[in-house]
Design a protein around this nucleic acid. Sequence first.
DNA 1: GAGATATTTAATAACCTGATTAATTTTTGC
DNA 2: GCAAAAATTAATCAGGTTATTAAATATCTC
Lengths: 206, 206
Amino acid sequence: MPTNNNISTEQAILEAAEEVFLSKGFALAKTVDIAKLAGVNQALLHYYFRTKENLFDAVFAQKIRQIISSMGEVLGSDLPLMEKIKKQMEMQFDFLLSNPKIPFLVISEITRVPQRIETLKLTVNTQVLKIIEKLQLELDEAHREGKIRQISALNLVVNVISQNVFLFLAHPIFQAFTEMPDEEFREFVANRKQENVTSILKSLAL
Amino acid sequence: MPTNNNISTEQAILEAAEEVFLSKGFALAKTVDIAKLAGVNQALLHYYFRTKENLFDAVFAQKIRQIISSMGEVLGSDLPLMEKIKKQMEMQFDFLLSNPKIPFLVISEITRVPQRIETLKLTVNTQVLKIIEKLQLELDEAHREGKIRQISALNLVVNVISQNVFLFLAHPIFQAFTEMPDEEFREFVANRKQENVTSILKSLAL
DNA sequence: GAGATATTTAATAACCTGATTAATTTTTGC
DNA sequence: GCAAAAATTAATCAGGTTATTAAATATCTC
């Protein structure tokens, strides 16, 4: 009779893997290090996941799911347009604050191993495209009413994501550049939430 | 008596290294592949650069220099403020179009091996900080004259770089997401130059 | 052209890392 | 308790990649 898998060990491995993969990426992550961090023998990790690749996929798919779910919620709602954009940006920014390493992992791994985009496509339901279409209708309407300039929804979405995500990708560079101490830099980042919203909303003006 | 180093061979290795490092990054680049691409024996590369690390540094420092020099030129000039921002953004965007893989390499390698930031610091003279200070003065003046909202120069610079660079970092993801064919995607990217300028300039409004 | 030095190569050593195996300990069901 | 299955470990293999070595060839100086 099979016993249950030892969930806590498997979980420990997954959590260690998440930490190591997030900070090193796939190629530089060592299974030995993951095992050590999880407090188990290195062979055990193969016992549970068979390959490093499998282990990575488990972590990666989960991260993708998190990022996607942080993106759509508010945009689907029926708040007034400007309100909605603001809320959405704030949510996204907060997500990034709690998960600052996810964007780099995702971009990095997809760039280096393009096949990984399949993981992403599997997770991304067509809803996202629907949401963009709906956003376009609202933007068009606001434009007709003389409230905002004409802009494609896709461009707006790219603008928003650029503003929000870039700093988290480049933060080691910015910090070195500006030579801000950690504390000051944290404050700078915190202020960016407001600055991002302001600049995006203003950029929509006629 | 020593003869001169064989410049063309060294150059061939450097160029091959650049290509391979840009597309694979440090960890996934194989010295064998670089040697093969340069058309030389693999040991020769060690003869010239001793280690893979040295070879990488040579390439990396050069890329940093390119990126820096693409950033300061126009901002130092004495065009009218808005004109200057527009020109600077267009230049930067054009640079990215010709060097689309540099941002990823730089961010990626600095994130993965933070010590590399030293390479960056050595290359970045304090001029950059001077330029930002000067920009701040001009922004403050324009604000006093009621032409633009109040904004810190650093925030503006971050906004500009975010807008311009992000798409080049994320392009595999965007393309997959939107399922645009190559041709359409190229067109979309080309249009972003204008969109970026527009949205940044509008974002400065009162 | 000879001798010295630089350049290049083939072969292989040294190392790292993911995966496997076989044995040991722990847990489970009866 | 005991046998069977699961969980865990130590040891080691296998593959790939960087680095070294020693020898061969080209180039330069005189």
